[in-house]
């Protein structure tokens, strides 16, 4: 009965494969990982299809499973790369954060005016530049940031899954946000605002 809405497993790949793959690719930024996540998701769905209650669409149900699979992969990777992490461009360490402020706690340089967000979102390749800036974050920080901001995973869940404290999480998100802001400022916003001013 619920099988009617979920469809037969033979059809999942054709009906939802591309959507799952795209979703996984945005999150993992890696073709092979995305493929693996899709495979794991469909296998889990096959095994757990009796648990599908029909409360959500098949697509939503599968994406729910996919999110867990991606989280598992992130958690696994987080353990692996934790030891040696290359310092990369969009990462701001404590010193760099401190350098953004003068000793009395004021900003060292003025914040740029990004103008009207709605307008800027429409303007050109914002999403591509955002993606490039996300890619420039160190892997561990990027994953955490994607989980929280893009997949909208609960803070509590992330802390539990990755075994970190909330304070820890907030600090890392803060650094990622400042790094991303700097990257956007340099690569996109400044240019876009200038272009707008030139008319």
């Amino acid at each position: 009965m619920t099988d009617n809405r979920l469809g037969s497993p033979d059809t999942w790949l054709d009906e939802h494969g591309a959507a799952l793959y795209k979703y996984a690719l945005v999150q993992t930024r890696d073709q092979h990982k995305a493929e693996e996540a899709v495979q794991e998701t469909l296998l889990a769905a096959l095994q757990g299809r009796d648990r599908y209650t029909g409360g959500a669409s098949a697509r939503t149900w599968l994406i729910g499973i996919l999110k867990h699979k991606i989280m598992d992969m992130f958690r696994h990777d987080a353990r692996e790369v934790q030891l040696a992490e290359p310092e990369e461009e969009a990462y701001l360490d404590e010193d760099e954060i401190n350098a953004m402020f003068i000793p009395d706690g004021h900003w060292r340089s003025k914040s740029s005016d990004w103008g009207d967000p709605e307008d800027l979102l429409q303007r050109g390749q914002f999403m591509e530049i955002l993606q490039r800036c996300l890619d420039a974050l160190p892997p561990r920080l990027a994953r955490l940031f994607m989980l929280r901001e893009v997949m909208e995973e609960d803070s509590e869940n992330i802390c539990q899954e990755l075994a970190i404290t909330p304070t820890n999480l907030w600090t890392m998100l803060y650094r990622a946000r400042l790094g991303l802001r700097q990257c956007l400022d340099r690569n996109w916003v400044g240019n876009a605002v200038q272009a707008a001013a030139r008319g």
């Binding site: 795209k22 979703y23 945005v26 999150q27 900003w107 914040s111 740029s112 005016d113 990004w114 967000p117 800027l120 979102l121 914002f126 999403m127 955002l130 993606q131 901001e149 893009v150 997949m151 909208e152 946000r177 991303l180 802001r181 956007l184």
Partner: peptide
């Protein structure tokens, strides 16, 4: 301005998730 930038980034990232 910083607050507007953060809120904007937050919204844009969610949009990225929705699009995916």
């Amino acid at each position: 301005r910083f607050e507007r930038q953060m809120n904007f980034m937050h919204a844009a990232l969610r949009l990225l998730g929705k699009r995916a």
